[in-house]
Amino acid sequence: MNPVLIDELLKISLVLLVILTTIIISRRNLVSLINVYSLHSLVLSFIAILFFLSEGNYTFLFAAALTIISKSVLIPILLRWTKWHMKIFTDIEYHYLKPVSSIFVSLLIIIFSFFIFSKIKDYLGLSSLYYFGVIIGFSLVMIGFMIIFSRRKIIVKIIGYLVMENGVVLLSLFIGEMPLLIEMMVLMDLLVLVAITCILGFGMDSSMEEFHKKLNPFHNWFNRRAKK
């Protein structure tokens, strides 16, 4: 394919990723958060496909397929399932940052990562587009980190973690593709982690009375006998 066209498409996908990330930061509705996340992963796999088209390495194609299956289908289904059982719809609890200030913080994050990477730009030997991809990837990681620390609902924290993970994948696409075996194991690990945190988060986020009742017999594990 025409390398100029691929470069333009790469730029457009990076732009799309940034837009989707700002939507993730500013939305409170859980359903749209999950949908936007699956779109986010779709764009990521599109970038991987672009890499396959420009370099002809089948690892990229395989990684793209794995990403689509796991991140834009399986994990959103899992999240939706959890959300449906928890019966919560919006996230209005924040630790430190409200959406407006978190958007400004993410702006600072992007500038900060620009600053960090300018220190090692010469050693990496990347073209300026790839370099920009690296910066966006790293900023996604930091933005995900910010989401984890500023939101209180576990399910939103999980989405923050997933955004971080997408950032790491973006970074690895632009710097150098990992071997397929490792790629697969990382995805497996991610799936297990999300599953476990969903199941565990169930007990904490849930607004259902019965669940709290279920936990109650073991509630005061530590001081039960002392009280008696």
């Binding site: 790293f138 990681v141 980190f145 984890i148 576990i154 924290k157 973690y161 971080m164 993970e165 790491v168 970074l171 990382v186 982690l193 476990i196 945190t197 565990l200 988060g201 007990g203 904490m204 936990l215 073991f218 509630h219 005061n220 594990w221 530590f222």
Partner: peptide
Amino acid sequence: AKENIVAAMKYVFITSTAMLFSFI
């Protein structure tokens, strides 16, 4: 117990988030 779930969640979140940095 609920405290254990909270502790485990904290453990998983802090370590796996930080571990993503080491993947970078």
